[in-house]
């Protein structure tokens, strides 16, 4: 059962000043970032790599990467949480793929060249209220829809790889993926205003 872990995460109301302090290289700001998002980052990475020791290494890489690249972030707009989670997910999936001997995908572009793209997110996107909405939206998906989304999100599989893994035709998988994403978009429309 999925528990909305983000309920434990404080509303990110002062992320803006946190980002500004990180940009001024204030190590205490990193400590606060860790206190705010360390658990959710670790939880996400453990879910992907399923090994606590490896997950801790990857959490460290994640925070260092964000620390080293925070200059590209717009502190006036920013909620840093979603960016941090994207970096965490990419680190974890890269690890998973290299451990499995699969080709690494070039995710760096999305995550590091354009951190600005994470900036407009609503400040409380990681709030408990939303976590509950997301949980219920995911639970409303059909089992196949949920499965393809999990394989894509937590294992970083391509649609072709998902088809292989599930032993289903690629066309069927593509239909499920699209339907799942559409359902999530519709369900979360109120959560994530345009």
């Amino acid at each position: 059962m999925m528990i909305p872990l983000l309920m434990a995460v404080h509303a990110a109301e002062d992320d803006t000043s946190l980002v500004a302090r990180m940009q001024r290289r204030d190590p205490n700001a990193l400590a606060e970032l860790y206190d705010r998002y360390g658990r959710v980052t670790f939880s996400l990475i453990v879910r992907v790599v399923r090994d606590a020791g490896i997950a801790e290494d990857l959490v460290q890489e994640t925070f260092l990467r964000v620390w080293n690249r925070v200059h590209g972030f717009d502190a006036q707009k920013g909620s840093i949480g979603p960016w941090l989670l994207a970096v965490a997910r990419n680190r974890a999936i890269d690890y998973l793929r290299s451990a499995a001997g699969r080709q690494r995908q070039s995710r760096e572009f999305e995550e590091t060249d354009l951190p600005a793209l994470y900036c407009d997110m609503e400040k409380d996107i990681l709030s408990s209220h939303k976590a509950r909405r997301v949980k219920s939206a995911v639970e409303k998906l059909s089992p196949n829809q949920r499965h393809v989304i999990e394989l894509a999100y937590f294992e970083g599989l391509s649609q072709t790889e998902i088809a292989e893994r599930m032993g289903q035709p690629l066309g069927t998988v593509k239909t499920w993926v699209r339907a799942a994403l559409k359902n999530l978009r519709d369900e979360l429309g109120a959560v994530v205003p345009a």
Binding site: M1, M2, I3, P4, L5, L6, A8, V9, A31, Y34, D35, G38, R39, V40, F42, S43, L44, V46, R47, A52, A55, E56, V59, Q60, G81, P82, L85, A86, A88, R89, L117, Y118, M121, E122, I125, L126, K130, A131, V134, K135, V138, I149, Y153, L181, L184, R185, L188, V191, V192
Partner: peptide, 21 residues
Amino acid sequence: REVVALLGGTVPPAVPSAALR
């Protein structure tokens, strides 16, 4: 990305060691 980021918050909670911080 907002929709996708929200998925990341639905994982089972886990606690890293205190040494990690």
